[in-house]
Design a protein around this nucleic acid. Structure first.
Length: 257
DNA sequence: ATGGTCGTTGGACGA
């Protein structure tokens, strides 16, 4: 099974990219973030005609998460509360073939001095509680999405200069580590040991992709029982180089089920 | 090595 995560930065703006990329990469499951669309306007048919089941929750202009799956959903849980009233546009948890999948769009955090940054840190704390209360460490669980944090020095293009920036800040590292400590393995890092593999390049940096000025802020993490069954993991940089790209690109992992 | 560019909107704001 191939599973992917992609911050599409508006699903409607990225529909052509997705229609091109999905048949090409042929992932079985895709977690999408920043769909930026209300549920009534979600272009579900485009994905159904490509052979995917789809679960989604979003809002006007901001946030929004979705999961595409070639297999039926045995359970769909929206937000922290399950109904979508509490962060339904940022958290979507499903069950597919005995596999638990949690897709998150973690708050970006704006600036380390801001309230939004504190909100981001609290979000990680709430997420740890969510995992503790809803799952067991022995579960076959995959947590993926836009974490909006580059965990290690090799995950940013200039760790010295960027340390303390939003997305690469010691307090974010601590908050993320506390969630990881519950029982996650960074699946991508299990397979790719060297740096310079990024999932995000700021639109504002001219030729940022070619110049390697990226960040690895999108992740596929899993509990031991699933991480041990991962065969490979990679970042597909190609869609970031196409016409009208997202500022992120998909990260994928293949799991033997 | 960012003082910028997208996306959603219909003037800013978020990223």
């Amino acid at each position: 099974m191939v599973i992917a995560s992609f911050n599409c930065n508006s699903i409607r703006a990225r529909i052509e990219v997705l229609k091109r990329w999905l048949p090409m990469a042929n992932p079985d499951v895709v977690a999408l973030q920043e769909t930026k669309v209300e549920d009534k306007d979600f272009p579900a048919e485009d994905f159904q005609s490509l052979g995917y089941e789809i679960a989604f929750k979003g809002e006007k202009s901001y946030n929004g998460v979705a999961i595409l799956s070639k297999y039926k959903f045995d359970d769909v849980f929206y937000g922290f509360d399950g109904k979508g009233a509490d962060e339904g546009s940022r958290l979507l948890a499903v069950q597919i073939k005995k596999l638990h999948i949690v897709n998150t769009y973690i708050p970006q955090g704006f600036d380390p001095q801001s309230e939004k940054f504190q909100y981001k840190l609290q979000w990680f704390s709430r997420l740890r509680t969510f995992f503790e209360s809803r799952y067991k460490k022995s579960d076959k669980l995959i947590w993926l999405g836009d974490f909006n944090v580059a965990p290690e020095p090799i995950d940013v293009h200039n760790p010295k200069r960027l340390l303390g920036s939003v997305g690469y800040h010691p307090e974010e590292h601590k908050a993320l580590a506390i969630v990881k400590e519950w029982g996650f393995v960074d699946v991508f890092r299990e397979h790719i040991k060297e740096g310079g593999h990024y999932t995000f390049w700021d639109y504002r940096v001219k030729d940022g992709v070619a110049r390697g000025l990226g960040w690895r802020v999108d992740h596929i993490w899993a509990t031991e029982s699933i991480a041990g069954k991962s065969i490979r993991s990679w970042i597909d940089r190609e869609p970031r180089l196409w016409e009208k790209p997202s500022d992120h690109t998909p990260i994928l992992a293949e799991i033997s089920l």
